[in-house]
Structure formats: C-alpha cells, structure tokens
Amino acid sequence: DVAKAIINLAVYGEAQNRSYERLSLLVDTVGPRLSGSKNLEKAIQIMYQNLQDDRLENVHLEPVKIPHWERGEESAMMLEPRLHKMAILGLGSSIGTPHEGITAEVLVVTSFDELRRRASEARGKIVVYNQPYVNYSKSVQYRVSGAVEAAKVGALASLIRSVTSFSIYSPHTGIQKYQDGVPKIPTACITVEDAEMVARMASRGSRVVVQLKMGAKNYPDVDSFNTVAEIIGRKYPEQVVLVSGHLDSWDVGQGAMDDGGGAFISWEALSLIKDLGLRPKRTLRLVLWTAEEQGGIGAFQYYQQHKANISNYSLVMESDLGTFLPSGLQFTGSEKARAIMKEVMKLLQPINVTQLFTAGEGTDISFWIQAGVPGASLLDDLYKYFSFHHSRGDTMTVMDPEQMNVAAAVWAVVSYVIADREEMLPRN
C-alpha cells in the first residue's frame, strides 16, 4: 500500500503543505532568480544546505556556465496621437537603446506574414506585433523571433504583445533570440491592452509615435550549478529515475509559480519517500536546474556530462507547467511504456489524478527524451499558468498549498513506483 501511504502523508498527514511552506521561505528570502544574478546563486547555496539538512544522499552541485543579462532601467512612452506611458518588460538577451532612446512611428502587424507583405513600410519604424493568443507554443514564436523578423525589414525596434491567456495590464517577459547576420535591435513585450489599442489607432489611420528606452545589457557567461540530491537505489543503484524542476526564474515577481512549484514538489517527492523509510530498487535523483529560462542551458550541460549513462535512465520527469491541481501526467514513450504508465496512474485513484496524456515535455528533459528516454511532465491549469507566467504576478499568492500537496503526491507515487518496479521502462 505504498501509494496510499505516500498520498496520506502528502495530502492528509504530517507532510501536508510542507512543499508550499518550503517554497514560500525560499522565494520570500531571495526573491526572483534570474540567470547570472546573485539571487540565483544564493538560492542554489540555500538549496544545497536544505537538501543536506533533509538527510538526502549524494547531495552535490555540478558546475555549469550560464548567460548573464541585466534589464536595467526601461520605459516606453506613446507620444502621438496622445501621451500614454506604456508598461513594458524588455526581453531576455535584448540589447539596450541609445541613452536618449529610440523615437519612431510604429507599424502594427498581427503576423509575420503581414510584416513581410508590408516590409516596404517598416524601414525606420518600431514594429508592434499584435498577434492573437492561439496557445503558448504557437504565440511564443512572436516573442522569440519578433526582433529578428523586424530587423530583417529595417525596423529600429520591436514591441510584442505579451504571450498570455489573460491580462490585467500585465506585461510578460521571456527569452528572445537574435540571428547571426541580422542586425540586433532592442525588443520588449507590451501589454495586451496597449497592443490592441495601438492596433485600433493605426487601423483608423492615426500616426502612432513611441519613444522606447531600454538599459538592457549582456555580460560574459558566469558560473552556476545544477543542484543534485538522491535516494540511492537498493538493488540497481546505477539505474536512475530523474525528478526535476528549475530553480532559476525571470527577474519579475518571485518566480514562485514558474517554476519554484515544480522544483519544490520534486524535492518533496524525495522527502516523502525518505520519510516513509522507503528505498526503491533504482536511484531516485532530484535535479534542480539552473538557467532553464535561457533555453535549458544548465540542463544541456548536465546532459552532455551524463549522456554516457543514458541506458540507465528509466524515466525523466520535469514539472514546469505549474503545480496547481494536476489534471494528469503528460508522457512521451513507447506504447509498451505507455501501457505500464497507465497502470501506475491507476494507483492515484484516491486523489482522482489518473489521466495519462501524450507529449511529456520539459525544456530541461527534452535532450533525454529526444535521445529515447521515456519522459513525463505534470499537466494542470494552463490558462491560469500562462496568465501569470513571466509576469510580476508570479508570486506565492498564485500558489495553493493543498494543490501543491496533490501535485507532490502524484510526483512521488509515479517516481517511486517506476524506480522500484523490477524492470526499467521499455524504450523502443
């Protein structure tokens, strides 16, 4: 009755709300944890101590190099057809503007296609993308590539509608990528409300002029660490189930939901199993990634350093879509492995989280999944998640201790059973 014991301990017993309390202590203490920031390195040192105090095994830090970008002071002011201060969040890795800023007329488009059709109008302008929110993975392309596509047609800067499912005048940040051979221009996200207002003004034929100022700066890469802790397997210690979340966040809010929650339910999974005196046949490895938000930078280096042992990884798991009440588990693997995972999900009947979806995903575990290791991620309320994602609203106020208890129970049952059953998950 292992599953029942884990569920009782996490949801109704001594350990309830522990992951929420631990998370709130960390994020209230250090705040948001941007790649390259002192806050992130402080959080790593605190977690290194926490995991040792929690009497986990083989607790250690694995050194990596990560990007260091700083936002600096930034602002945007609409000057015509009337004065209006625009809330913005510059995008990660963007360059800054000259001190006096960039003042230019805007060209509003709703898609890359429209931008290419109107390329002749773009030279010397600030391109405003007012792309509709379809879903995160489709719409995020405008944030990631908006500057490059605007620069290709001679624009001076790009302002991109925040990639969010709901807005109360909240800009959302995130990483953007330049392209070799394409001039670098400053780029930031604006609110849904401002993107739509500017679009309405332009569609009536008004000339819209904006002044953008950004103090953003890119610095040389800095040292950081992936944080690792284990419960060493009692029979096949060289074989691994990897449970993970990322410890870094954007430099807004507290980085509680994205994805402090995922990091702390991963820690909680090992604590629950340890508290019950359980030791699975295979090693349960917790990894708290660094610099996920810049593109899985810490996780890629971890993969490079450990891929020689890939045949020993039975399952890789990452929680990076929030830890609200889970609707189930996303899973990528063979049909045989999926059939086994479906049996495992039945053990979660007591908390009614038994659905197994496709497309297990996670920036940090994608390298392992692409190399054939079965992968799993926690799925929950994406509408709520992307409403707060990468915004100043990402704080403990969004989190719910009871929902985190359930998420931790799912995470602990799945990771323990796969780590303890006699065989590894089948691959092909």
């Binding site: 599953a3 049996e343 039945k346 323990y416 065989e423 089948p426 092909n428």
Partner: peptide, 24 residues
C-alpha cells in the same frame, strides 16, 4: 528478473499489471 537492458521483458503484461497493482 531482467532489467530491460535488451528491451525485452521477461514478464507478461498481466504480470506487470499485478506487480504495479501491489503498490496500491
């Protein structure tokens, strides 16, 4: 039992189902 090094299980799916059910 095999540890799935060669991708072939020594157990039938029914045995696997029973194995997992005992974790309940």
């Amino acid at each position: 039992a095999a540890i799935y090094q060669n991708g072939v299980s020594q157990n039938t799916f029914q045995e696997i189902k029973e194995e997992i059910a005992h974790y309940k």
